[in-house]
């Protein structure tokens, strides 16, 4: 025997429940009875559960962040503090470091080549 609830009643309740388990113990007896006998509502309960799990997982899903953002935030705080900012952004420091390393390698190679030429 089906309960007096309609599928719409159950669907309405599902969207409003504040528990990601959705269904089972968070539903009242009448809803549980209905869902137990209604394939459509069983599918809906499963969909709601899956939707809630995915929603919760989004918080840990990284979004691409522009590397200049951190620097901009810190500059905003510097301005507020009235600091004269001499910050070098992390991404710029990395680039400068890379350039310096490359220049060092080129200088070393040049010196070695010159030394080899003199010996020859």
């Amino acid at each position: 025997m089906r309960s007096d609830l309609s599928c719409d009643d159950v669907l309405h309740a599902l969207s409003g429940t504040d528990d990601e388990r959705v269904g089972g113990e968070v539903m009242d007896e009448a809803s549980r009875t209905h869902v137990g006998q209604c394939l459509r509502c069983q599918a809906e309960v499963a969909n709601h559960r899956r939707l809630r799990r995915v929603l919760r997982s989004l918080a840990d899903s990284p979004v691409p962040v522009d590397p200049t953002l951190e620097h901009e935030i810190l500059l905003t705080l510097d301005e507020f503090d009235g600091r004269q900012s001499r910050r070098v952004p992390g991404y710029a420091a990395a680039t400068l470091g890379g350039l310096a390393a490359a220049a060092g390698v080129i200088a070393l190679a040049t010196r070695q080549r010159r030394g080899a030429r003199l010996v020859g």
Partner: peptide
């Protein structure tokens, strides 16, 4: 704190 949290805040 900014360095550690700004990615989540931006998300």
């Amino acid at each position: 704190i900014v360095r550690r949290t700004h990615r989540d805040a931006y998300g």
